[in-house]
Each structure stands twice: as C-alpha cells, then as structure tokens.
Design a protein around this nucleic acid. Structure first.
Lengths: 351, 351
DNA sequence: AATGCTTTGTTTAACGTTAAACTTACCTAT
DNA sequence: ATAGGTAAGTTTAACGTTAAACAAAGCATT
C-alpha cells in the first residue's frame, strides 16, 4: 500500500512486479504469461480495482472509445422528435455492436470565450445538425476529428444524405397532377431563426442543405407546367404543429384560393391539417396537404386523414452514419444516400 | 513551432511565456492579466487551437463534465420505449442547463476478463437498470462514483422511486370493486431472463424492485377480500406486445374463466388486448385489462379500447435523477419519490 | 522608508497510463 | 556447442494538463 488510490502502479508494487506487466495483463495478454496474468487480474479484482483509468489511457493513446453526436437543437427537443430518436437508435445499434460509447453533447450557452464548448472526449463526431453556419457545427468541423455529417453538404467529409430534391419533385408532380395550381409551401427556417415569407422564384441563400434541396425539387416540378414561380408563396416557420397552423392561416389570408399545402415536415403538416379542420376547410376535399418524414400522428384519437408524405428511414441514416464513422478504412469523403420514397395516402385529392 | 501538435506548451513556447499562463487564460482568467489573456486567446484562435485537451484535463483534475447512463437492456431497445425516451429527455434537459455531457454506455458482450466493460469517462452514473444483480449494474455500483439509481432499491445511494406498491394496490382494488375474482397477473421477468408461472402466494425472490413492489400491492389488495392468493396466477414474460399476447393465451388455457388481466406494463397490456380481440373475447365486456406507464397505443389505427393504466412521469424521473446526481451538496443517500396515479379508462368494466 | 498585501507570472511536480527499447532466460535447430 | 529466435518481463519516457509553491514587481498604508 503506497497511496490510498489503486492504480496500475500500486498493484504492481503490491505484487512486486512492474506496472507495465499489470497494464499488459489488461490490454495485451500476449505479452504476459498466463500465470502472471491470472495472478494480476485476481488480485485486481480482490482489491476492487476497475481497470485502467480511462482518462489516462485516453491521454496516452489518443483514443477513447466514444463518438459524439451534435444537434443544432436542444437535446431535449431531439428526444421529442420521432425522427431524431429513430436516428439515434440507428447510431446506438451500431455502437452497441462495437462497444463504442455515445456522448450526447448539449449546446452550451455559457460560451464565454468561445472556447468552453465542445470539450467532449470523443474519437469522432456525427453532426445531425443541418445548419451549416451554426457555431457549434463550425467548431466541430474545425476540430479535425473524423466527422460524418447528416443532411448536410460538406464535401470534405463523409455525408449521409437523402434524395430530397428528386423525391420532392415527385411529390410536387403528384400535387400538380391532381390539378392543383394554387399551392402554398411551408418550410422550417432556411437559416437558423429566420421566419420570412417569399415566393418560389426567390434566389435562396440558405445554410440548410435539406431545405435547399427540397425547394429545388418543388421548383423543378412547377416550372414548365404553366405555373409562375412567383405565384407560389413560401412561408418559413418553426418546425412544430403550431408553426404549421400559423403558417397555413397566414397563407390562406394572403391567398384564400390555395388548394394545396406542401409541408417540409409531418409536424408542420399535422398543424396545417388541424388548422384547416378548425377553419372548416375539408382535407382533402377542399385542401390537399402533404408532409415529410412519415411519423405517426401526434394524437391517438386523431380524426385527421392519413397523411400523404415522404418516408425517410431515419434508423438507416443513423446506422450508416455510425458505420461510416467507425469503419477505419473509409477515410475518404463520400456521400451515402438513403432513399426516401413518396407515400400517397388520404390527405391529397383532386382539386 | 516545436511539434506538429498544438498544446498549451506549444502555444506558450510560441508566445515566449509559460504554459501555466496559457492554461490560466482558459480556466483561471483571474490569475492572468486581461491583456495577456487576450493575447493568448487570440493567438490560440488564430492557430485553430480548440482548448485544453479533455483527457489530460480529466486526468489531472479527476473530473470530466459528463455523466453516464446505464441500462440493463440494449440501448437500441431503450430508444424504442417511450418511457425510456421520456426519461432520457428529462436527464437531457437538466444536463443541458448545466452544460454536462451525457454518455450512453452500451452493454458490452465481449467482456473477456470481466474488466473491459464500463470504462466510460464520467463523473457519475444514472442507473436506469432495474435488475440489481446484473453484472454491469454491479460493476457500476462498485466503482464508487456518485450514482443515482432509478426504480431500484439501493439504500446507500440516492434512489428515484415510484409508489409502485400503493398505486398497484389501488389498481387491484379497482379491479376487485368491479366484481372480478378470477384475475391473471402478467409481469416482466422477476430476475433477468426468467419466465415462470406461479401463484401470488409464492414468496418472491426477485432482484427487480419494481416488480416486487407491484406484486406486493396486488397481494395487499387481494388478501382479506375472500380471494385466495394461491388462486391468482402470475405469468412472467418478456416485456413486449408478443410477450403479453402469449402470456394471456397461456393463462386463458389454464383458467378459461379469467375475467381480468393486470399487466405490469402498457406494452404487455396492448398485447393482451390484441390477443383477446383475436380470441373473440370482448374488452372490457368479457375481460378487463390494465396496464402500467400510460404510453400511447402502438398502432395509430388501433381499434382497442382506451387503456386503464397507471401514469408515471418518466420525464420527471429523469429530471430528478439528473438533478440529484449533479447537485454537489446532496451527497447523502435518500429516496426521491415520483408519484404515479391510476387512470381509469375504457379497458376495465364490471364483471 | 519600511511593511505587508496584491497582482502577475514562473517553476516544478504529478495525474495514470501505454509504447518502445531493452534485458534476460529459455528453447530449437543446425 | 553455438547461433538465432521467441517468450517474459523491465526500464524509461511521454501523452497534455492543472495545482501548488514560489518569485518578483507594484502599490498602498502607516
């Protein structure tokens, strides 16, 4: 007994051997006779030693067996979003297979000198954080650790993406083919915190890849069909049911003859449908509504029609992201595509 | 430039000062003139230094600004359980307020020498792991770090508990007051992996506190009502819809005149109701069913009756657990109670 | 003008581990 | 019998940081 703290060194001293052998007993059994290893491990267990100190090991090896997940939103918000949860489940499944820990890194507000943040002990990051110019996002990218980005265009990194543009074109084609001409688009913010109103012809400057791609899809479908881009209103709002409801109300005030709402998330769409219901506008009789994500309805007793939407496999996204991050070999930047598909249900109908 | 790696030391060398001052510029501004601090931070930023290495800091200070969450189940399973997710949201909310990272620690299978596991860098644990004798649980407790246990009786630690016994007594009273005498109880395993059949008089040896308490509640309510404890069948099964369905089928084979199922989770209850429906037994006309947790129905188009169940506030549990762990002052072991309440709905009726 | 306090910065040591280079002993093959 | 190889263990140094003790200078108080 030399100190009150048990370490490799103290064990070695107790046993009259060198601490390296103790280390090897844990990490490098081949370098120690099995007899000695047993002796060491038995003794370690008997004095309630729990294995080499992770911080010290990490300092020495530069590795720590954990990956960090970064969101733009509050963590508590992520855990109310079925999409984010499914994503996390995908990540967790892979990490479980490999014995990797997952570090959830909350956004820190007390970022006094721009340095406090983001000091997690991780070997790499998964950025599920769609706003490119977000400071935390930027800082994570700047760190230079292996990083996989999701729904985010970062040419120098591995990115997991969905065919947002093409599937949104398909969705818009579906709406147009049903005869709709007066269409309102409801999206979450193009840049963090923005909530503007504009028309589809506007040149977009957004740092949200997903919004950008979906907007492109809409535009491609609409242009050339005899519909003017500048007649299509686009409303930004926060990604929630209330946001959707409010946006729908606003758009209907401006253009009472709108017959279809294309929403960039199911949450928004459910808000829109609820608002239409409240206003006495039948869905899909009077107004068609579409979503994105394919989540379950928020309310178990919902009387809303089944939502026409786009399914994206968030679980698969999580899996792919984690696999890409943990597979040593694939260092190169590359794009991993997870196919999203249009699902026609009962919230859309002919005009 | 001394090495290719940027460290406090290399910055100090570049600036011709001592590395302690650089450290102080980040952690201890009072110990450095504001002029020098600015100089250091500016320089650090200019060469893309991201703050002191967390592993080294952690090694030196013994702290790391993160807490670990341990489940008995697979993580991926936790992320499909609304109860666990709400719990996690509660934990995350608190951690967000305090800037603490959350480490999700998967159960490791490759536990070769009983030492590999559980080497996360954390300052404390939240054990959301109800089986006391689970090896990972034991190991976490043995580590001696600050630990909060949930749904788990550990007199030496802070525990977050629900009034399982009393609320279950209330539920059973409710069932009996409706006239039911032939009752089947369906529970998840008393010990990890067990799946027995027994009667309510059996002396229980379980290492799952929650099951134990709920069983006590049932027994208290039943005894003295002229119902023999050894006439009440208890069936263990895995906590899933299928488990519930299978258990119900089994119990009905043994006792076709059962008129009420008391289930220890909503998952089980939904499975039971579905099975009854399949067997042509009306719920609640022919059979009453009760749950525990108050989750939404699994299926959006469910034709099942609204479940009589017990609501427990998993979010509050998470909050309380995290607060108790992070509040320095409250070192003492103590019990934190989160009240659960009986919610009568449509799945129970008079016999 | 001497005393003591504060501010600012420095030196030194230690946190617990693992990688690399080194020693010794033992075994095998010629 | 000797060289060469392997096995088992040891010594040394380093990972990047922070805490503590220390030194020097500046300032106010008497």
């Amino acid at each position: 007994m030399h100190r009150n703290k048990t370490t490799l060194k103290s064990i070695a001293a107790d046993l009259g051997i060198t601490h390296t052998s103790v280390s090897n007993a844990f990490n490098n059994p081949a370098k120690v006779s099995s007899k000695l290893q047993k002796k060491i491990l038995d003794y370690a267990k008997s004095i309630n030693y729990h294995g080499p100190n992770p911080a010290a090991r990490s300092l020495r090896t530069g590795l720590c067996g954990a990956i960090g997940i970064i969101y733009n939103d509050q963590l508590s918000y992520a855990f109310s979003d079925p999409h984010d949860i499914a994503f996390l489940r995908g990540v967790a499944t892979v990490c479980e297979e490999r014995g990797t820990n997952i570090v959830l890194i909350p956004l820190k507000n007390n970022d006094l000198n721009n340095f406090e943040s983001l000091d997690a002990m991780v070997d790499g990051y998964i950025l599920n954080a769609p706003y490119k110019s977000n400071p935390t996002t930027q800082r994570a990218l700047a760190k230079g650790l292996p990083t996989v980005v999701v729904d985010f265009d970062a040419p120098l990194h591995i990115s997991v993406l969905t065919n947002d543009a093409s599937v949104m074109r398909e969705m818009t084609d579906h709406i147009i083919s049903l005869g709709h001409r007066k269409i309102g688009i409801i999206t979450f913010p193009l840049t963090e915190g923005s909530h503007d109103l504009f028309t589809l012809d506007r040149k977009l400057e957004t740092d949200n890849y997903v919004v950008n791609q979906r907007m492109i899809g809409c535009r491609e479908a609409i242009s050339g069909k005899g519909i003017k881009l500048n007649s299509i209103l686009v409303r930004e709002t926060i990604n929630s049911r209330n946001g959707g409801a409010e946006a729908a109300r606003h758009l209907l005030e401006l253009q009472p003859d709108i017959t279809a709402f294309i929403c960039f998330s199911d949450r928004l769409a459910y808000g829109v449908m609820a608002e239409c219901q409240r206003l006495g506008l039948d869905v899909p009789g009077r107004v068609s509504v579409t979503g994105f994500d394919d989540l379950s309805p928020p309310d178990m007793n919902s009387t809303l029609p089944a939502l026409t939407t786009i399914r994206q496999d968030a679980y698969a996204k999580g899996r792919k992201a984690a696999e890409a991050l943990l597979n040593k070999d694939e260092k190169q930047s590359r794009r991993i595509n997870i196919e999203a598909t249009l699902i026609k249900r009962d919230s859309t109908a002919t005009k």
